[in-house]
Design a protein around this nucleic acid. Structure first.
Length: 736
DNA sequence: AACCATCGACTTTTT
DNA sequence: GTCGATGGTT
């Protein structure tokens, strides 16, 4: 019943691009800036341009580099390119900044001053390591807050600054963090691990310090295309600038109004710097929106116009005006959830599907109440952005063993598994081992080995010895077993599997399943690895290191299609997505915009951009809800509606129930769905002849609902009786 | 060394 | 309200 226009096969026929899109796809300018508004066909332009370069301009696949921020975006782009140009896309580089940098570091490890077997640590490992270093240095956690220290280190790496470049600060805390930064650098180098920020910084430094390596890449990549450019940070910009040099072509695509990662170091100013650093930049604006109703766009445009210093851009559409935004002031957060459930039902009653719907919120904690309400109402839902697959504890435990097999000096991995499953090696023993490691500047593994003969026989020495035997035995298997077999072997031999199985708790079953999935993932990895290199890997000495890298750089939350369900996520994770029906919840001053942003204009503007992102996710219908009272973080507070609501012109909105003090047993909304009569503004009459694109001509038999959920029953000459949602069906009246 | 209870903190999170 | 870290107890 629902026909989406998206099914139309992609080709490089350029006629169905609009003027601006066509310009962007075919521009010959060496430096191209595409300001792509929400829903303006940004990805399409990127993909088409690549196809255009390959097929029309004689550019070879290996001369192209497309950079994105997420693996998801990268793989989507790759698939769409493949659809058009086929397997000649194999030599094309499409990837994330991190993925590409990692690849460059692997091929040039020695030149980058990295051991061949270096491994990647994630944020969690990084924090553990920093904590340990703080302890070792003899500082107090209270004085030297590990999280802030980590922020300090990462911030500086993102800015391209090494500890040595920081100088000596007279501010004690800065001096302390700087020293820790230096210790951290040394430790990572010694144990051959790199964190996320390091991957980028190293790749940048490699190019900066080895002109021959840089030249090689510069000569290869004639065309560089960058997606979501507004999210680039200082080091990523420097990376691009260096790689591009003076000869290569670069197209950057972005939207300053959707920059929502400033707090992570993203610099909108990079768009201005692009203008300054490169001459003759041609700017193209994609402002025609193919996603939302004109009402939704008007609201979004009005909101974002409150931000100063924009590059300037106004979305417009040829599409329908659609329904007004609905504003609901709930009594409390439970009432808010109740209202949402009711409107979800209404949508579905009108022929809509759960799949159309997203509920967005500012912070993850807000999902709980919503989930409760949805569960009670028996509505299938999925919460996005929770713990990612490879971040799960049981997964990371197995991976830590595997990491040790690649590099025995990986202290982070050692710490994780030395007493897992528990084998009697506790905090005390570990402290002694750390002490030795610190004194002799050796890894924990080596330190523990030298420590073992010095302790009396007993529980501790048994545990340690057992650990060594276990890991060394696994080590001999690396050259014998395929990756997934090795993983199973590790699970058995370490005792992890039994341990997980026998641990009490509700999550046991899920954990076991996760472990099975990991083994499966390993099998899949070796298969695709073999395909790529046209070989059969009988052992994992080769596949294991690449598997670990891949896993570290990929969250692994593949889009598992788990049925028809509504989606719950933060505004941040909604960026880039679209949904017919969107609920923007918790629209309260203090929550959104967050109270921590009140005092700072720049922060407040980022919140406003976040709101803009939220509004522009909606295709057909948008609800904004807030709760006058909300229990949050254990305490309840009274809230004013978000200032962002005030920034949306009132003619674009309709308020429901704004003065309700109690949840009403029957809300006015229920009455609107009554099927007994067609509403006044219903665009069709009973008995009217209509024409449908696919079903042909027919007669309206009946109808119900209103506005976006309005639907009609049509008796088609060929297809018989069908219910159609007016918003989708694009029925045309037939003159009689 | 392992376990349990109490305390406190609490935006957002592509890699 | 819930998670994680910490500290005291067994």
């Amino acid at each position: 019943m629902l026909i989406t226009e998206e099914e139309v096969p992609q080709d490089i026929f350029l006629g169905d691009l609009n003027g601006a899109q066509y310009q962007a796809v075919t521009a010959s300018a060496q430096r191209l800036l595409v300001l792509a508004g929400a829903g303006s066909g940004k990805t399409r332009v990127l993909v088409q341009r690549i196809a255009y370069l390959l097929t029309q301009c004689g550019v070879l696949p290996h001369q192209l580099l497309a950079v994105t921020f997420t693996n998801k975006a990268a793989s989507e782009m790759r698939h769409r390119i493949e659809k058009i140009v086929g397997n000649s896309s194999a030599r094309l580089w499409v990837g994330t900044f991190h993925g590409l940098s990692h690849r460059i570091l692997r091929t040039n490890a020695a030149r980058a001053n990295l051991p061949e077997n270096f491994q990647i640590i994630d944020a969690d490992d990084q924090l553990r390591l920093i904590k340990r270093l703080i302890q070792e240095r003899g500082w107090d956690d209270e004085v030297c807050d590990p999280k802030r220290a980590m922020g300090f280190i990462n911030r500086h790496k993102d800015e391209g600054k090494r500890a040595n470049a920081l100088g000596i600060s007279s501010v004690p805390e800065v001096a302390m963090f700087t020293e820790l930064y230096r210790l951290y650098e040394q430790h990572c180098q010694r144990t051959a691990v790199v964190d996320f920020a390091e991957i980028l910084l190293r790749a940048y430094e490699l190019w900066r310090d080895c002109p021959d390596v840089l030249t090689q890449y510069q000569q290869r990549f004639k065309h560089i295309l960058v997606d979501e450019f507004q999210d680039t940070n200082t080091i990523q910009y420097a990376w691009l600038k260096l790689l591009c040099g003076t000869e290569s072509n670069m197209m950057i695509v972005g939207d300053d109004d959707q920059s929502i990662y400033g707090w992570r170091g993203a610099k909108i100013e990079n768009i201005h710097r692009f203008h300054k650093d490169f001459t003759d930049v041609v700017t193209i604006r994609l402002e025609q929106n193919y996603r939302s109703t004109s009402t939704i766009l008007a609201a979004a445009n009005a909101l974002i116009s409150n931000n100063a210093s924009r590059l300037g851009k106004e979305l417009w559409t040829q599409g329908i005006q659609g329904e007004k935004l609905t504003l609901y002031g709930a009594f409390n957060e439970i009432d808010e959830a109740r209202f949402i459930v009711e409107r979800i039902r209404q949508w579905c009653h009108g022929g809509g599907s759960f799949e159309d719907i997203a509920i967005l919120y500012r912070s993850n904690a807000q999902s709980r109440v919503l989930e409760q309400a949805l569960r009670q109402a028996n509505i299938a839902y999925r919460v996005y952005g929770g713990l990612r697959f490879f971040d799960r504890a049981e997964i990371k435990d197995v991976l830590a063993y595997l990491r040790l097999l690649v590099n025995l000096n990986d202290d982070t991995a050692f710490e994780r598994v030395i007493n897992l499953p528990p084998r009697g090696v506790g905090e005390r023993t570990l402290a002694s081992i750390r002490e030795i490691a610190k004194e002799k500047q050796i890894s924990l593994w080596v330190a523990a080995k030298s420590y073992l003969p010095t302790i009396p026989l007993g529980r501790i020495s048994n545990g340690l010895r057992q650990f060594f035997e276990c890991v060394e035995d696994m080590l001999t298997q690396v050259n014998m077993l395929a990756l997934s077999e090795l993983m199973q072997y590790v699970l058995q031999k370490s005792g992890l599997f039994i341990y997980v199985k026998t641990q009490p708790g509700e999550r046991t079953q899920a954990r076991i399943e996760n472990l099975h999935e990991l083994v499966q993932a390993a099998g899949q990895f070796s298969n695709s690895h073999d395909e790529m290199y046209e070989q059969t890997s009988t052992h994992s000495s080769e596949t294991l290191p690449s598997f670990l890298s891949e896993v570290a750089l990929d969250a692994g939350d593949r889009d598992t299609e788990d049925g028809v369900c509504i989606k719950l996520m933060t505004l941040h994770s909604a960026k880039g997505l679209e949904f017919p029906l969107v609920f923007l919840t918790g629209m309260e001053d203090g929550l959104f915009p967050h109270h921590r942003c009140f005092h700072d204009r720049a922060l407040l503007e980022e919140e406003r951009r976040l709101c803009y992102v939220g509004l522009t996710r909606a295709m057909r219908k948008l609800y904004l809800t807030y709760a006058e009272k909300r229990a949050f973080a254990g305490l309840s507070g009274a809230n004013r509606p978000s200032r962002f609501i005030d920034e949306i012109p009132t003619p674009l909105t309709e308020s429901v129930n704004l003065n309700a003090k109690m949840p009403l047993p029957t809300s006015p909304a229920k009455r609107r769905t009554s099927p007994d009569a067609l509403e006044d503004d219903f665009p069709f009459q009973l008995g009217q002849r209509v024409k449908h694109q696919r079903f042909g001509e027919g007669v309206i038999l009946s109808g119900d609902g209103a506005g976006e959920t309005a639907r009609v029953q049509v008796n088609f000459a060929k297809e018989g009786k069908k219910w159609l949602v007016l918003a989708y069906a694009k029925l045309e009246p037939v003159e009689q």
